[in-house]
Protein backbone atom coordinates (compact mmCIF):
# COMPACT_ATOMS: atom_id res chain seq x y z
CA UNK A 1 0.00 0.00 0.00
CA UNK A 2 2.68 2.48 1.05
CA UNK A 3 4.60 1.93 -2.16
CA UNK A 4 1.75 3.41 -4.19
CA UNK A 5 1.28 6.34 -1.83
CA UNK A 6 4.23 8.02 -3.51
CA UNK A 7 2.70 10.40 -6.09
CA UNK A 8 5.54 9.99 -8.61
CA UNK A 9 5.28 6.20 -8.54
CA UNK A 10 1.51 6.40 -8.63
CA UNK A 11 1.60 8.71 -11.64
CA UNK A 12 3.80 6.27 -13.56
CA UNK A 13 1.37 3.45 -12.85
CA UNK A 14 -1.71 5.57 -13.50
CA UNK A 15 -0.39 6.85 -16.82
CA UNK A 16 0.09 3.26 -17.93
CA UNK A 17 -3.31 2.02 -16.63
CA UNK A 18 -5.77 4.79 -17.55
CA UNK A 19 -6.20 4.15 -21.26
CA UNK A 20 -6.38 0.32 -21.09
CA UNK A 21 -9.00 0.59 -18.33
CA UNK A 22 -11.15 3.00 -20.32
CA UNK A 23 -10.84 1.17 -23.65
CA UNK A 24 -11.43 -2.29 -22.15
CA UNK A 25 -14.32 -0.91 -20.07
CA UNK A 26 -16.06 0.66 -23.06
CA UNK A 27 -15.57 -2.44 -25.25
CA UNK A 28 -16.77 -4.85 -22.54
CA UNK A 29 -19.74 -2.65 -21.61
CA UNK A 30 -20.77 -2.32 -25.26
CA UNK A 31 -20.50 -6.09 -25.73
CA UNK A 32 -22.50 -6.79 -22.55
CA UNK A 33 -25.23 -4.31 -23.51
CA UNK A 34 -25.44 -5.79 -27.03
CA UNK A 35 -25.67 -9.26 -25.49
CA UNK A 36 -28.35 -8.13 -23.07
CA UNK A 37 -30.36 -6.17 -25.64
CA UNK A 38 -30.28 -8.54 -28.60
CA UNK A 39 -29.31 -12.01 -27.47
CA UNK A 40 -30.49 -12.51 -23.87
CA UNK A 41 -34.06 -13.77 -23.48
CA UNK A 42 -37.09 -11.74 -22.41
CA UNK A 43 -38.45 -12.25 -18.90
CA UNK A 44 -41.51 -14.46 -18.48
CA UNK A 45 -43.33 -11.74 -16.56
CA UNK A 46 -41.82 -8.43 -17.62
CA UNK A 47 -41.04 -9.21 -21.26
CA UNK A 48 -38.49 -7.01 -22.98
CA UNK A 49 -38.52 -4.28 -20.35
CA UNK A 50 -36.26 -6.53 -18.26
CA UNK A 51 -33.37 -5.59 -20.59
CA UNK A 52 -32.86 -2.27 -18.80
CA UNK A 53 -31.47 -4.46 -15.99
CA UNK A 54 -28.06 -4.52 -17.72
CA UNK A 55 -27.78 -0.75 -17.26
CA UNK A 56 -29.71 -0.31 -14.03
CA UNK A 57 -28.04 -2.91 -11.80
CA UNK A 58 -24.37 -2.12 -12.65
CA UNK A 59 -25.15 1.59 -12.27
CA UNK A 60 -26.69 0.97 -8.85
CA UNK A 61 -23.76 -1.15 -7.65
CA UNK A 62 -21.14 1.29 -8.93
CA UNK A 63 -23.06 4.21 -7.40
CA UNK A 64 -22.80 2.47 -4.02
CA UNK A 65 -19.22 1.23 -4.51
CA UNK A 66 -18.27 4.79 -5.50
CA UNK A 67 -19.22 5.96 -2.03
CA UNK A 68 -17.48 2.92 -0.60
CA UNK A 69 -14.33 4.15 -2.36
CA UNK A 70 -14.82 7.67 -1.00
CA UNK A 71 -15.31 6.31 2.54
CA UNK A 72 -12.26 4.00 2.34
CA UNK A 73 -10.05 6.76 0.95
CA UNK A 74 -11.39 9.19 3.56
CA UNK A 75 -10.51 6.72 6.30
CA UNK A 76 -6.95 6.36 4.95
CA UNK A 77 -6.68 10.14 4.64
CA UNK A 78 -7.83 10.75 8.20
CA UNK A 79 -5.65 8.09 9.81
CA UNK A 80 -2.47 7.97 7.69
CA UNK A 81 -2.70 11.44 6.09
CA UNK A 82 -1.87 10.09 2.64
CA UNK A 83 -2.35 12.98 0.21
CA UNK A 84 -3.17 10.52 -2.59
CA UNK A 85 -6.11 9.17 -0.59
CA UNK A 86 -7.65 12.64 -0.44
CA UNK A 87 -7.19 13.02 -4.20
CA UNK A 88 -8.65 9.55 -4.83
CA UNK A 89 -11.75 10.34 -2.76
CA UNK A 90 -12.33 13.58 -4.68
CA UNK A 91 -11.80 11.79 -7.99
CA UNK A 92 -14.41 9.11 -7.22
CA UNK A 93 -17.21 11.59 -6.53
CA UNK A 94 -18.15 12.57 -10.09
CA UNK A 95 -18.31 9.04 -11.60
CA UNK A 96 -20.10 7.80 -8.46
CA UNK A 97 -22.70 10.56 -8.75
CA UNK A 98 -23.06 9.85 -12.47
CA UNK A 99 -23.76 6.17 -11.88
CA UNK A 100 -26.20 6.95 -9.07
CA UNK A 101 -28.09 9.36 -11.34
CA UNK A 102 -28.07 6.73 -14.12
CA UNK A 103 -29.46 4.17 -11.67
CA UNK A 104 -32.28 6.53 -10.64
CA UNK A 105 -33.11 7.47 -14.24
CA UNK A 106 -33.14 3.89 -15.57
CA UNK A 107 -35.03 2.75 -12.48
CA UNK A 108 -37.68 5.36 -13.13
CA UNK A 109 -38.01 4.27 -16.77
CA UNK A 110 -38.28 0.66 -15.61
CA UNK A 111 -40.73 1.43 -12.82
CA UNK A 112 -43.37 2.83 -15.15
CA UNK A 113 -43.95 -0.40 -17.13
CA UNK A 114 -43.15 -2.82 -14.28
CA UNK A 115 -44.90 -1.22 -11.31
CA UNK A 116 -47.12 1.39 -12.89
CA UNK A 117 -45.29 4.37 -11.36
CA UNK A 118 -42.30 6.51 -12.38
CA UNK A 119 -41.41 7.12 -8.77
CA UNK A 120 -42.54 5.99 -5.32
CA UNK A 121 -41.19 7.05 -1.94
CA UNK A 122 -40.28 3.60 -0.70
CA UNK A 123 -37.15 2.86 1.34
CA UNK A 124 -34.94 1.78 -1.56
CA UNK A 125 -35.72 4.65 -3.92
CA UNK A 126 -35.58 7.28 -1.21
CA UNK A 127 -32.23 6.10 0.21
CA UNK A 128 -30.76 5.99 -3.32
CA UNK A 129 -31.92 9.57 -3.94
CA UNK A 130 -30.31 10.54 -0.63
CA UNK A 131 -27.06 9.00 -1.94
CA UNK A 132 -27.19 11.27 -5.01
CA UNK A 133 -27.66 14.31 -2.77
CA UNK A 134 -24.76 13.14 -0.58
CA UNK A 135 -22.57 13.04 -3.70
CA UNK A 136 -23.61 16.60 -4.61
CA UNK A 137 -22.87 17.79 -1.07
CA UNK A 138 -19.51 16.00 -1.07
CA UNK A 139 -18.51 17.56 -4.40
CA UNK A 140 -19.49 21.04 -3.21
CA UNK A 141 -17.62 20.53 0.07
CA UNK A 142 -14.46 19.13 -1.55
CA UNK A 143 -14.52 21.92 -4.13
CA UNK A 144 -14.87 24.61 -1.46
CA UNK A 145 -12.15 23.05 0.70
CA UNK A 146 -9.80 22.86 -2.29
CA UNK A 147 -10.48 26.42 -3.47
CA UNK A 148 -10.63 28.40 -0.24
CA UNK A 149 -8.52 26.32 2.10
CA UNK A 150 -4.85 25.44 2.10
CA UNK A 151 -5.64 21.96 0.79
CA UNK A 152 -5.35 20.27 4.17
CA UNK A 153 -9.02 20.42 5.17
CA UNK A 154 -10.29 17.15 6.68
CA UNK A 155 -13.94 18.18 6.47
CA UNK A 156 -14.67 16.38 3.15
CA UNK A 157 -13.07 13.21 4.55
CA UNK A 158 -15.23 13.37 7.68
CA UNK A 159 -18.30 13.89 5.49
CA UNK A 160 -17.23 10.94 3.33
CA UNK A 161 -17.17 8.68 6.39
CA UNK A 162 -20.45 9.99 7.83
CA UNK A 163 -22.21 9.54 4.49
CA UNK A 164 -21.16 5.88 4.39
CA UNK A 165 -23.92 5.16 6.93
CA UNK A 166 -26.35 5.42 4.00
CA UNK A 167 -24.78 2.49 2.10
CA UNK A 168 -25.99 -0.34 4.40
CA UNK A 169 -29.34 1.46 4.63
CA UNK A 170 -29.69 1.28 0.82
CA UNK A 171 -28.73 -2.39 0.82
CA UNK A 172 -31.02 -3.46 3.65
CA UNK A 173 -33.91 -1.09 2.85
CA UNK A 174 -35.71 -3.83 0.92
CA UNK A 175 -35.13 -6.37 3.70
CA UNK A 176 -35.91 -4.28 6.79
CA UNK A 177 -38.95 -2.50 5.43
CA UNK A 178 -41.87 -3.33 3.18
CA UNK A 179 -41.00 -1.73 -0.13
CA UNK A 180 -42.25 -1.72 -3.69
CA UNK A 181 -38.74 -2.52 -4.90
CA UNK A 182 -38.11 -6.26 -4.81
CA UNK A 183 -35.42 -7.81 -2.54
CA UNK A 184 -31.96 -8.49 -4.03
CA UNK A 185 -31.84 -11.21 -6.70
CA UNK A 186 -28.14 -11.83 -6.20
CA UNK A 187 -26.62 -12.19 -2.77
CA UNK A 188 -23.60 -14.03 -1.39
CA UNK A 189 -23.18 -16.52 -4.23
CA UNK A 190 -26.91 -17.17 -4.61
CA UNK A 191 -28.96 -15.99 -7.53
CA UNK A 192 -32.71 -16.00 -8.11
CA UNK A 193 -31.91 -14.91 -11.63
CA UNK A 194 -31.57 -17.44 -14.46
CA UNK A 195 -28.05 -17.71 -15.93
CA UNK A 196 -29.30 -16.25 -19.23
CA UNK A 197 -29.76 -12.93 -17.40
CA UNK A 198 -26.94 -13.33 -14.91
CA UNK A 199 -23.99 -13.73 -17.31
CA UNK A 200 -24.54 -10.59 -19.44
CA UNK A 201 -25.23 -8.72 -16.19
CA UNK A 202 -21.92 -9.78 -14.62
CA UNK A 203 -20.02 -8.88 -17.82
CA UNK A 204 -21.74 -5.50 -17.78
CA UNK A 205 -20.66 -4.98 -14.15
CA UNK A 206 -17.04 -5.73 -15.14
CA UNK A 207 -17.25 -3.18 -17.98
CA UNK A 208 -18.83 -0.50 -15.76
CA UNK A 209 -16.19 -1.09 -13.09
CA UNK A 210 -13.32 -0.71 -15.57
CA UNK A 211 -14.80 2.55 -16.88
CA UNK A 212 -15.17 3.74 -13.29
CA UNK A 213 -11.52 2.86 -12.53
CA UNK A 214 -10.31 4.55 -15.72
CA UNK A 215 -12.23 7.75 -14.98
CA UNK A 216 -10.99 7.83 -11.37
CA UNK A 217 -7.36 7.40 -12.51
CA UNK A 218 -7.73 10.09 -15.17
CA UNK A 219 -9.29 12.49 -12.67
CA UNK A 220 -6.61 11.76 -10.05
CA UNK A 221 -3.94 12.59 -12.65
CA UNK A 222 -5.79 15.79 -13.55
CA UNK A 223 -6.06 16.87 -9.89
CA UNK A 224 -2.36 16.08 -9.31
CA UNK A 225 -1.34 18.00 -12.46
CA UNK A 226 -3.48 20.94 -11.38
CA UNK A 227 -1.91 21.11 -7.93
CA UNK A 228 1.58 20.82 -9.45
CA UNK A 229 0.82 23.67 -11.86
CA UNK A 230 -0.47 25.76 -8.97
CA UNK A 231 2.63 25.06 -6.89
CA UNK A 232 4.84 26.03 -9.84
CA UNK A 233 2.94 29.29 -10.31
CA UNK A 234 3.24 30.05 -6.61
CA UNK A 235 7.00 29.41 -6.68
CA UNK A 236 7.33 31.63 -9.72
CA UNK A 237 5.34 34.44 -8.11
CA UNK A 238 7.48 34.13 -4.99
CA UNK A 239 10.78 34.28 -6.87
CA UNK A 240 9.50 37.31 -8.78
CA UNK A 241 8.62 39.01 -5.50
CA UNK A 242 12.13 38.39 -4.24
CA UNK A 243 13.67 39.71 -7.43
Amino acid sequence: MHRFANPARFLRLARWLTLPCLVAGIVITAAALAWGLFSAPADYLQGDSVRILYLHVPAAWLGMWGWGAIATASFVELVWRHPLAAIGARAAAVPGAFYTALCLATGSLWGRPAWGAWWVWDGRLTSMLVLLFLYFAYMALADAAGRDGDGTSRIPAIFGLVGAVNIPIIHFSVIWWNSLHQPPSISMGKSAMADDFLYPLLVSVVGFTLIFAGVVLARMRAILAESQAEARLRRKAMSEDIA
Binding site: P41, D43, Y44, Q182, S185, D196
Partner: peptide
Protein backbone atom coordinates in the same frame (compact mmCIF):
# COMPACT_ATOMS: atom_id res chain seq x y z
CA UNK B 1 -57.44 4.70 -5.93
CA UNK B 2 -54.30 3.31 -7.49
CA UNK B 3 -52.65 -0.08 -7.95
CA UNK B 4 -48.92 -0.73 -8.21
CA UNK B 5 -47.61 -4.12 -9.32
CA UNK B 6 -44.84 -5.56 -7.15
CA UNK B 7 -42.78 -8.27 -8.79
CA UNK B 8 -40.40 -10.55 -6.92
CA UNK B 9 -36.66 -11.01 -7.31
CA UNK B 10 -36.87 -13.96 -9.69
CA UNK B 11 -36.01 -13.50 -13.36
CA UNK B 12 -36.94 -16.38 -15.68
CA UNK B 13 -36.59 -16.47 -19.48
CA UNK B 14 -39.82 -16.43 -21.43
CA UNK B 15 -38.98 -19.83 -22.96
CA UNK B 16 -39.44 -21.32 -19.52
CA UNK B 17 -42.88 -19.75 -19.21
CA UNK B 18 -44.64 -22.86 -20.50
CA UNK B 19 -43.19 -24.91 -17.69
CA UNK B 20 -45.29 -25.00 -14.58
CA UNK B 21 -44.28 -22.42 -12.04
CA UNK B 22 -42.74 -25.17 -9.94
CA UNK B 23 -40.57 -26.43 -12.80
CA UNK B 24 -39.39 -22.91 -13.56
Amino acid sequence: DNLLAKHDERYVPREMKDMTEQQA
